[in-house]
Each structure stands twice: as C-alpha cells, then as structure tokens.
Computed example of a mutant assay.
Amino acid sequence: MTTAGVVLDPLTPADAQRCAELEAMLFPGDDPWPAAAFLHELDAGHNYYLAARADGRLVGYAGVARLGNEAPFEYEVHTIGVDPVYQGHGIGRRLLDALLARADADAAEVFLEVRTDNVAAISLYESAGFVTIGLRKRYYQVSGADAYTMRRPRTREDT
C-alpha cells in the first residue's frame, strides 16, 4: 500500500460520524469520542483539524488546539487516529507533521498526552522531537491507563 493517493484536507462536520467510528475501533477501552465531540471541536475557533482521505474516504484524522490569546502560544495535540487498515504507511506522520507546521508558524511549544503502552505513538512523537516530561496516573478514566505528558519545544523564536 502507498500513501501517495492519500490527501490531507480540512476535517468537516460531515466527517464527524466516520471519526467516531474510527475512534470506537482505535480506542475501545478509553471512552472514544462520539460524533458530537468532533462537532464541538470543529466549532472552536482555536482548533485546527485535518482529515486524511484515500479515494475520498476518511482514513485518518488529527487535531490540535492553540492555547492562549496572544503570543507566545502553546499548542496541544488533541487526537490523531488512522484506520487500522492504513496504519504503518506514514499517514499518522503526515498528519502530525501538518499539525506541527501549524504550531511552528506561531513559534509555539506543543504538548500532548499518550498512553504509556502505546509504543508506536510514542516512537512517532519522539521522532518528531517530543520528550516525555511527566506521567499522569490513571489519565484515561475508563481503562485506568496512565499517560505520558510529552513536549516539543518551539522550533524558532518569534522575531
């Protein structure tokens, strides 16, 4: 499989139900987001959400929030998910890179939480410059799983 035909574009309200379906597949024991949560996120003016589409079908999504009302901003990755059929082919990397480019435009630090047992995601984040800065015990309330808090420093200083 190649990701050459996968297109990144803005996530839309029409994508919310498919995102919820993917969430249920990807995060079944951790209170997956329903469609209404995606709609709420899309309505917030400080959020930036992307879709990954293969042949017009949503196969991945990602979102980040800009925190603060004035520079210097911080960003927080809210979610990244890729259909299991499409995992391992660089779609998650492309989505993450697009979110980071948005943060880089504001010369912002980026934070996220990730399950401590999600080795693939941790590796992805570390390869993008994130470092673990903390541990949140029982962060995922339904499963009781712990999460690492990770930080990626700003890549440039505002001039």
Rank of each mutant, 00 (worst) to 15 (best):
R156V: 07
D97P: 06
A52V: 09
P32W: 00
L67T: 13
V6R: 05
R18D: 10
E109C: 13
E21V: 05
I133K: 11
I133W: 07
L11G: 01
H46N: 10
A145K: 15
Y148S: 03
P84R: 09
Y125Q: 04
A128T: 08
L124I: 13
G81V: 11
C19E: 00
Y61T: 14
G92W: 02
G60M: 14
E109G: 12
G144E: 06
Y49A: 02
D146C: 07
G56N: 02
K137H: 04
K137C: 05
Q87S: 10
A71H: 00
M150G: 02
V82Q: 01
L58S: 01
A71Y: 00
R66I: 02
F73Q: 03
V82A: 05
G29I: 07
D106A: 13
L42R: 10
V82C: 05
A24W: 00
G129T: 06
A35F: 02
D104P: 11
A37T: 12
D83V: 06
V119Q: 14
R115Y: 06
P28E: 07
D55K: 09
H40N: 07
M25L: 15
I80Y: 10
R154G: 04
L99H: 11
V119S: 11
A37R: 12
R138V: 08
E23Q: 01
D104C: 09
A24T: 08
V77Q: 04
T155C: 09
E74K: 09
L112E: 10
V119L: 13
L8T: 00
A62E: 07
Y48L: 07
E23V: 00
A14N: 03
A24Y: 01
D30P: 02
I122M: 06
R152L: 00
R136Q: 08
R154K: 05
D31G: 09
V59N: 05
I80H: 09
I80V: 15
A54C: 05
R151Q: 04
L95E: 07
T132L: 05
D43P: 06
R115H: 05
A105R: 14
R66G: 02
P84V: 12
L11N: 00
R102N: 13
D104S: 12
R53D: 00
M150N: 01
D31Q: 11
R156G: 12
Y86S: 11
S123C: 13
R94Q: 11
L39E: 02
V64M: 11
P28F: 02
V82Y: 03
A44T: 09
Y140V: 08
Y49G: 04
R93G: 13
R154T: 03
R66H: 03
L112Y: 09
A14H: 01
L100A: 13
F130D: 12
V59P: 03
G5I: 08
P10W: 10
L11M: 01
A120Y: 12
G88A: 08
A20C: 00
P84T: 12
E74A: 15
T2K: 02
L67V: 15
A103L: 06
Q87K: 08
Y139W: 04
M1A: 14
R53C: 06
D146A: 09
P13C: 04
E41Q: 08
V114S: 12
V110N: 08
P13K: 02
D146R: 06
Y61R: 14
L67G: 11
H40L: 08
G56D: 01
